[in-house]
Design a protein around this nucleic acid. Structure first.
Lengths: 182, 182, 182, 182
DNA sequence: AATGAATGAGCTTTCATTCAT
DNA sequence: GATGAATGAAAGCTCATTCAT
């Protein structure tokens, strides 16, 4: 790949990510071209479709979460590991609220995005699997609930988010501690 | 208001609600006119804007939830009352998935919609207020979490939703029982 | 149909016909809107496709030829009848050269256009059927050759077209007189 | 010229000719590059313009016809010579229908193409000039009619083309035999 | 000389909204 | 009040052509 091509591709991607993170999910590819300072054709070469753009950005977000899960796994205490993951993941998600609103809305996915999500589920399941007593939730369920938490927390004004995060995590911890039988 | 005008208004509203509930978020007002069997002009008399249509439908959904909360309040046992509300509300929400996907996405609101939401918060706070020990969540928080739950549950296939609902509600109950101090 | 709608439709059609007759077969629907003094949307309501426009115009031309054939049929002498048709038809065609260049190029047709062409063939076959001795060409063949003649004649400069028409018609007459066996 | 350059030029030319002969009038230069297995830039070095490509291909076709005329000229009997030329030329033209559809449509020409056409006219005039009685058509006229014949014949289904060719040629022979005065 | 990424004018098409009837 | 034709801004997309590599 040519150097200028790589540079363009990166700028376009970054601009797309910034826009979606900021909640501008209706970003048109023409507008993206304008913001990136390239011609429309170039954008269409990178993202053949608005949808393709969206999913590429989402995939990259999923991969960020995977890295956070990997980092958390290095923690010895299983409860702390899970908590660390949830805290850092929530923080990351809340810094880019639009991204996760979309992640929630999206239904039809590319293989790349699906694969990334599957990897993420695996990581989270592993974190849950170390808990004793065994928790009431599977990794998949926890992630779905996670999206819900993001949404719930993001509705709070900036200054109360930390407190809200604490409240929800405490509730979750208590719920998980109750074990599978309820 | 003329009788035919009232009839039209109702048909248009119903059709809009049905479409949005079914997830047809691309519903255009021209299309809505076609489905309702009226001219575009008539639709624009009922809903001056596409946005207005959306919010009118959302408000009506919020009012439905308010009624469910009112019904639940007649239950004597506070824990059962809350559980009844959450169950019936979740069921209603899941039957109209599109509606709540939109509710999640929507940011800019009319006064009518804002007022309806406020009333709903009041009702839920009242349900929570009867719990002992006092719960860790405010009514507002619970509703935000509620949206998250809808999303989490709706990602499950139809046949596993009942079980998922149970699991999440159990987790929620355990969490709430733990009380404010964690 | 509303009066203004009819007026617009007619203006659009006329403008399209003029352009194509003048050889501007690449006429875009946007340009057609501009020339007709209406919005693009209006043009797209009249002609959903550039192709649709083209075929509508062609059909109208075919219908003009049908009328000429009908008029020629009222002539008693069969040879004069055919000659009259060919002369007037050639004159009409040459006044709108583009139209027939397209008629030549077109392959994929709507039913309307196909039907009009079939009617035209019927008329010309009838004119040929009256000739004695029976001619060597069917109506269909004659029409195909007719397109060829248009093209051949239209390549001549304006001032020599009359002479060219004479030459080709004379050749045709002699050829037809020779009869089917050659 | 470098060997690879020559090879490229030839491949591009052949691919262009094949496509146009096959009636693929929508051939873009980017697509031509793809099919030829070279970059767009290389195509643009060979054909500075899409138009240039078209005319180059047409010129090559004209030169093919010139060769056929030269071959026919070696026949002693003037009537047979003309007939041979017309038959072989029609056969060649019908094998590449797209080429002649384009030839008909084209108006604006390069000098190369114009020159080739002039040479062709000279050859055909020479073939006509040997006929006795002197024919009613000039070489130029005959060629224009020729295009018409191609079109007329090409409209027939494959299996009836030989018969159609016979019919039209017979008609032409009879017409030419009638001489200049009609 | 070859490559193919980039460009951007311009076309098709949609649709929220207005307004003549 | 109802109707639906008209509008035109704006989006998606293509492709002839240029130019950095």
């Amino acid at each position: 790949m040519r150097a200028d091509a790589a540079r363009n591709r990166e700028r376009i991607f970054d601009e797309a990510r910034r826009a979606i993170a900021a909640g501008d999910t209706a970003l048109t590819l023409n507008e993206l071209a304008r913001r990136s300072g390239v011609g429309v054709g170039t954008v269409y070469r990178v993202f053949p479709t608005q949808r393709a753009m969206l999913e590429a950005v989402l995939e990259s977000s999923a991969r960020d979460l995977i890295q956070l899960a990997d980092a958390a796994e290095r923690e010895d205490d299983p409860h702390r590991a899970l908590e660390e993951f949830l805290r850092t993941a929530l923080a990351a998600a809340l810094a880019q609220p639009g991204l996760f609103t979309v992640l929630i809305t999206v239904t039809d996915e590319t293989d790349d995005l699906r694969r990334a999500k599957a990897e993420l589920v695996t990581r989270v399941s592993r974190l849950l699997g170390r808990l004793r007593p065994a928790p009431a939730l599977t990794g998949e369920n926890l992630l779905k609930l996670f999206c819900g938490l993001i949404h719930a927390i993001s509705e709070h004004p900036e200054e109360r988010r930390a407190a809200a995060t604490d409240a929800y995590l405490r509730l979750l911890r208590a719920g998980l501690a109750a074990g599978p039988a309820g």
